[in-house]
Amino acid sequence: MILAFAFLAGMTLVSALGVVLSRNVVHSALFMSGSFLGIAGFFVMLNAPALAAFQVLIYVGAVTVVILFGIMFTQRPQVRRYRTIIQRQHWPGFFVAVGIGAFLAYIVAIADWTGTGPGNGPRGVDALGNILLGVNGAPPIFGLLFEVASVLLLVAIVAAIVVSRRKTGEGVDRGVEE
């Protein structure tokens, strides 16, 4: 168990660092999908395999592709120096991030977690299904949330189309000047 945990944690965190520090945007995208896979592994370890499947399908499958599309449409992939890609506020940002991480870790570490143990997760798809629909003992609010989420997805599709519509009269976009 520990080996699996250590391996997955390392994969996830290294990929996350890769997203942030990579000079090549496409490399960042691929690191991101690596990180998603690590998370999926975690989900399996946490007794939620159906969720792991969702994670892989949606994140690694769809979100990564959408982001790659976005990269393709917007700019040149390769830059030379770090200064071009990193903001001037990187030191304050670094300390804030460290601070947040430390603070959260500290809170978690000093809390009292007795009485908790693994095994309560939804092991099968039917369990997850019950939870999502709010039936058979799960909080009934989930029914409403499920429906609202589907409406939200519809609205997002329409919004994305409307926002990125090309107005009449605009030419085909050319490449960015260096």
Binding site: V19, V20, Q87, G93, I100, L104
Partner: peptide, 16 residues
């Protein structure tokens, strides 16, 4: 938490 911190750092610092 660590992953969140890394993500926060990246969101604050990258230009793209």
């Amino acid at each position: 938490a660590i992953m969140f911190a890394i993500g926060a750092y990246g969101a604050l610092v990258r230009r793209n």
